[in-house]
Design a protein around this nucleic acid. Sequence first.
DNA 1: ATTGTGGCCTGCCCGC
DNA 2: TGCGGGCAGGCCACAA
Length: 261
Amino acid sequence: MPELPEVEAYRRLADKALGRTVASVRIGDQRFLRGGTDACRLRRALVGKAFAAARRRGKLLVLDVDDSDRRLGLRFGMTGRLHVDGADGVDRLVYASDRRLEAWDRFALRFTDGGSLVVSDPRLLGGVVLDPDEDVLGPDALDVGRADLHRALAGSTAALKARLMDQSRLAGLGNLVADEVLWRAGLSPLRPAGSLTDAEERRLHGHVRRTLEELVSAGGSHLGELMPERQVGGRCPRCGAELRRDRVGGRSTWWCPAHQR
DNA sequence: ATTGTGGCCTGCCCGC
DNA sequence: TGCGGGCAGGCCACAA
């Protein structure tokens, strides 16, 4: 699914769409429009304009409209893909089909030069939003500071993993990367978020940054060492213990009870 | 305010 | 061989 590393790959792909004039906007499915926007408003904001920048905040991709204070927000849910001029942002997506059906094209921009920017999403869990509220998102996990991470966790009794995935505290960690980070840091996902010692928090901070940097460098098609073991009978790649499965924050969580404490 | 839960959405996989 | 049920999780609405 698109986690932060994939969305970062999409952002780089979206760079190819900058500076090109939008000729038309096609909405493949009304349900893909979020935040109360509609096709009319989108066309008014985009047609005849070009994008000045492609930014990412957590898992939200934001395209700034040139000569305007408008912004186009793209969310990818877990099965959303970005295509620019037919090129794919990533090769494969975990949990998503590798097929490309035109019926799955939920949002498409055509440029005056004949190229296109398309969001395809079989499951409609992503969406398009005009002028997304970026302030509801916490600091970006890729370059989160030590103090910001502390603020995200301190004083909370919620499960550590649930808090790490709370996008308003820390933007960008999804289910799979959260499991990978906690596994690398040797911390139980069930620990109360506020119970970490200073040393544990520092360790976690290092692993959040390093894991994301590594996965972004890998191009967004690799989601960590734990990923292949997320199945019944899966074993810890580090110590060989059988992985445990729990539901944390409403999500399937795979972790090693032997070394994650 | 914080925390937890259920629903949305549909392709895919497994068991019958 | 076809069919139905369960599963996947980002995001949001809502409850306690």
